[in-house]
């Protein structure tokens, strides 16, 4: 059996036998669902956390101060512990009543991503020159109006590229959800390897991740160029 036949044989075992390509495809579907769901949840949580942190700055309102403390603790804990351990804790201790692992995976990855998104938004807002805020306030605009009409339109240009990177990281990080028995792309490859005694499925999975990341990166570049074109600084 020559080299090329060997490769063909490996691919045959990884994809064709017992219609194993269907397992990979289903896994890919789950990976995409988790990544998308977690992204939406993560952005929502991130925005809420960022708003809390922004309103708390200089505020004496006790409710906001407490919310701010909670947000800080949340961000510290999430960023300070491995996502896999977070998933184990969710699936075995917090969300035990939820049967579908995929929902736990979405919630877990979303909760995790939210902490990072909050920091991305905060950093993007802080990167806008302080004088912009002062100019807005000196014109009699409220804190909220200054945020909406002056700071945010400029901050978005800092935030969007970093958010894009966060999604790419998130997409790859979903590969740990197999540990809470969710059948994602990585998990499917693992199962095929176990029954076929051949690691080719891992290479195929790696190729699929790579294509998705390269595609996403290209889209992000395009968006960044768009933003740069409307940049008048």
């Amino acid at each position: 059996m020559n080299f090329f036949q060997g490769i063909a044989d490996s691919f045959y075992k990884a994809l064709i036998v017992q219609e194993r390509w269907k397992m990979l495809l289903e896994g890919l579907g789950n990976t995409l669902i988790i990544a998308l769901g977690a992204t939406v949840l993560g952005v929502a949580i991130g925005i809420v956390l960022a708003i809390i942190k922004y309103s708390a700055d200089g505020s004496k309102n006790i409710v906001i101060r407490i919310l701010d403390k909670i947000a800080s603790i949340y961000i510290t804990v999430i960023r300070g512990t491995p996502v896999m351990v977070q998933l184990f804790i969710l699936s075995t201790a917090v969300l035990v009543s939820i049967r579908q692992g995929i929902i736990i995976a979405i919630i877990g990855m979303g909760l995790n991503s939210g902490a990072y998104v909050a920091e991305i938004i905060r950093a993007g807002i802080n990167a806008v020159d302080k004088g912009q805020n002062e100019a807005g306030r000196s014109l009699g605009l409220s804190k909220g109006q200054t945020m909406r009409y002056i700071i945010l339109p400029q901050a978005v240009k800092n935030i969007l590229p970093a958010l894009g990177n966060e999604f790419i990281v998130l997409l790859k990080e979903t590969s740990v959800v197999g540990y809470i028995a969710v059948e994602d792309l990585t998990f499917a490859a693992q199962r095929i390897k176990t029954v076929s005694y051949d690691p080719t499925a891992f290479f195929i999975a790696a190729g699929v991740y790579l294509v998705m990341v390269i595609g996403l990166t290209a889209i992000l570049r395009k968006i960044e160029r768009r933003l740069a074109r409307s940049d008048h600084r």
Binding site: D129, G131, Q132, E134, A135, G136, R137, S138, L139, G140, I150, P153, Q154, H232, R233
Partner: peptide
Amino acid sequence: RERMGMVFQQFNLFPH
């Protein structure tokens, strides 16, 4: 603040 105009060293026009 509407009654008090302010002009800054760094102009602080809104670039967008």
